[in-house]
Design a binder for these strands. Structure first.
Length: 653
DNA sequence: AGCACGCCGACT
DNA sequence: GTCGGCGTGCTC
């Protein structure tokens, strides 16, 4: 017997919100338990065992009789103190369960993988070859690297476009500053976490990283890995030595040693929004990790997101741009005859058609098209503008032709409809039938091979030979030597989507395609006028985005304000919403709107300063709804914070 | 979620 | 008189 009995505080691995807190258990004699290890514990009934994680060891408990831990599942402390703290912060910000966050962060355990990892004697593992200390960030002003890597720094780093190097050494210019920053941080003994939107980026950034850091220090967290491989890579990041972790979304949780820098690439890409509860966004998780660790955080992109631009404008973040940039000539071509008129084969403006023909003599030509059949909605039959609510700026909808149009956010009925642009009264459904077909374009350029790349037929690279490459936005392959020309089609249709993300998505999509064009290549944007045309021609997006941000401020739309979408059965939804609204007159509600049979959605808006109050009110109201009498599983409400995409869902079917 | 504790109908 | 209905409440 050795004096004080030890008590383990255990986080249960369960989806039940009522159990999402710590439970005390006694530690059986001789069981080697430390914070972070996986255990199995009895819960109420002696028979069933529940998996969980020990998060701390205490001297005593306020409970009289403690059940003992039934089993030490694994001696590996996977739930590190930093991860535990991060999970709590995320759960609190999203009014969700800590255990749900832990489930996102820690992959499933594979005994064989773990045994192999435990078998490696890491004490004798070599620290890796000496690294070149680059000391500066090529292409950026002097001192940029110091700004970027200083502890606690928050940087918005604008990436250069274009293609660098030749043959096997060909790289996207966007990847270079990221790779160099990572190498520099690593040389200083720090770990780096780089989070990119998708597999395509993982491939491209991996190449750039391979050029400047030793392969054995690079860990790649790919969504495509098998679960066993994921666990192996997770364990590699647990090593007590610096690593560079490259991955999508979930890589933001990598429990690396001595984290110095987090890089979030293209934070505006929707792939950074976690689709699983509690729906955290990479952007927010990155800042929460900074809060815990004091690491530097950098957001990199060709076009800043409204969120990061807002931070820059508030002085919360420092913007850094390349000292010089070479951008291809971009020519917007407005048709002037009405959007469906065509003056050349394949419905292309003649100028663009000529440029494409010319480009095809020298190499591949990229055609970016808009994915057809997107967000349903209504637009004015007179002027084609997206139909919006004059109260909250939400999209109008109607479930059938005869039904009066109402707002998808606040449910206001618009009878009669009056278009704010042209005073027209007629609405038409929108979004169908846009987008040019591959065969259309093929006919316009007889004899030229047409290569198609989209979500169904993903393609990372194409050769340097002349070919017409037709790609949907986001699926553009890299062309060897860069594209000779680029046509950006359907710009007007993209900009007319009523979604909140429209402008950002469109600009980012354009600039990404432009970054794949070779030096001296030509770019044509069809059917776009006004300030978007000016912005894409000059490559200067900031005034346009600042203006958009100011509008969001005036309309009280994100990211100027925070919001939470609460959906579920009307009664329960109203209860939860009511708690939030009671906090302050600065909290207001849009809706409820009917989503589906018996399911409504309300959107609660609030200033950032009221975040903690709204979060805890929503959480406690939610907990009461599941505890209360006659609470059924299907009566659950769904709570999603700060995810504009949830507002695009106009109906649940 | 499970499972136990708890106050009202038909059974050997 | 007891066995058991599943309504409410707790789980270290």
């Amino acid at each position: 017997m050795n004096g004080a009995a030890r008590v383990a505080r255990v986080l249960l691995d369960t989806r039940l919100p009522q159990l999402d807190r710590l439970f005390d258990y006694s530690i059986p004699e001789g069981m080697a338990v430390e914070p972070g290890v996986r255990v199995r514990v009895p819960l109420r009934s002696e028979g069933r065992l529940t998996p969980g994680y020990v998060v701390e060891i205490a001297k005593e408990s306020q409970f009289e009789k403690l059940a003992p831990i039934a089993e030490l599942v694994s001696p590996v402390p996977v739930l590190t103190p930093e991860l535990w703290s991060l999970a709590r912060a995320i759960a609190s910000r999203n009014a969700g369960n800590v255990s749900d966050v832990v489930r996102l962060a820690i992959p499933h355990r594979y005994v064989r993988v773990e045994k192999t990892w435990l078998g490696v004697d890491r004490a004798t593992e070599s620290p890796g070859p000496a690294l070149a200390n680059l000391g500066s960030l090529p292409g950026y002003p002097e001192g940029t690297i110091e700004t970027l890597l200083s502890p606690g720094a928050r940087t918005l780093l604008q990436q250069p476009g274009g293609i660098i190097g030749e043959g096997d050494g060909e790289r996207l210019a966007t990847t270079i500053p990221v790779a160099h920053s990572a190498a520099e941080a690593l040389a200083r003994g720090n770990s780096v976490v780089i989070v990119v939107p998708d597999w395509r980026d993982i491939e491209l950034y991996r190449q750039a990283l391979d050029d400047v850091i030793p392969m054995e220090l690079l860990v790649v967290w790919d969504q495509d890995l098998t679960p066993a491989e994921r666990y192996g890579e997770f364990l590699r990041t647990l090593d007590a030595a610096p690593r560079v972790v490259l991955g999508s979304r979930h890589a933001i949780y990598a429990p690396v040693h001595n984290l110095g820098l987090v890089v979030v690439v293209n934070d505006g890409d929707e792939a950074h929004a976690e689709p699983l509860s509690p729906y955290p966004h990479t952007r927010d998780v990155a800042l929460m990790r900074q809060q815990d660790t004091g690491c530097a955080v950098a957001f990199t992109s060709l076009v800043p997101s409204l969120n990061t631009l807002r931070w820059v404008e508030k002085g919360f973040m420092t913007a850094v741009s390349p000292s010089s940039s070479s951008r291809p000539t971009v020519i917007p071509t407005a048709l002037g005859l009405g959007s469906d008129q065509s003056v050349a084969p394949g419905r292309l403006p003649s100028q663009a058609y000529q440029a494409a023909k010319e480009g095809l003599r020298q190499g591949p030509v990229l055609v970016q098209v808009f994915r057809a059949g997107f967000a349903p909605g209504l637009s004015c039959a007179g002027c084609g503008e997206a139909a919006r609510c004059n109260r909250c700026h939400g999209p109008l909808r109607s479930s059938n032709q005869r039904q009066a149009p109402n707002c998808g956010w606040c449910a206001k009925v618009h009878v009669p409809f009056v278009c704010p642009e042209c005073q027209g009264n007629t609405l038409k459904p929108r979004g169908s039938g846009v987008g040019r077909t591959v065969s259309d374009l093929g006919k316009a350029f007889p004899g030229v091979p047409v290569i198609r790349a989209d979500g169904d037929k993903p393609l990372l690279r194409v050769g340097g030979e002349p070919a017409l490459v037709v790609a949907t936005r986001g699926a553009e392959p890299i062309a060897q030597g860069g594209y000779a020309a680029l046509l950006l089609l359907d710009g007007a249709s993209m900009l007319q989507r009523e979604s909140l993300g429209t402008l950002e998505d469109t600009l980012r999509g354009w600039e990404h395609a432009i970054s794949l064009v070779r030096t001296g290549g030509k770019v044509f944007v069809t059917d776009v006028e006004g300030s978007p045309a000016l912005a894409v021609a000059s490559g200067v997006y900031q005034p346009l985005l600042s203006h958009e941000l100011a509008q969001r401020e005036a309309l009280r739309l994100p990211p100027a304000v925070r919001f939470v979408a609460i959906s579920g059965p009307p009664q329960i939804t109203a209860t939860v919403v009511g708690e939030a609204v009671a906090i302050s007159p600065d909290v207001d509600v849009l809706g409820p709107v009917l989503l589906d049979d018996g399911i409504v959605r309300s959107v609660v808006r609030f200033p950032y300063s009221l975040g903690p109050a709204v979060q805890s009110a929503v959480r406690s109201a939610y907990l009461r709804t599941i505890q209360g009498p006659r609470a059924q599983a299907r009566d659950r409400v769904r709570i999603v914070f700060d995810t504009p995409r949830t507002l695009d869902v106009l109906s649940a079917d």
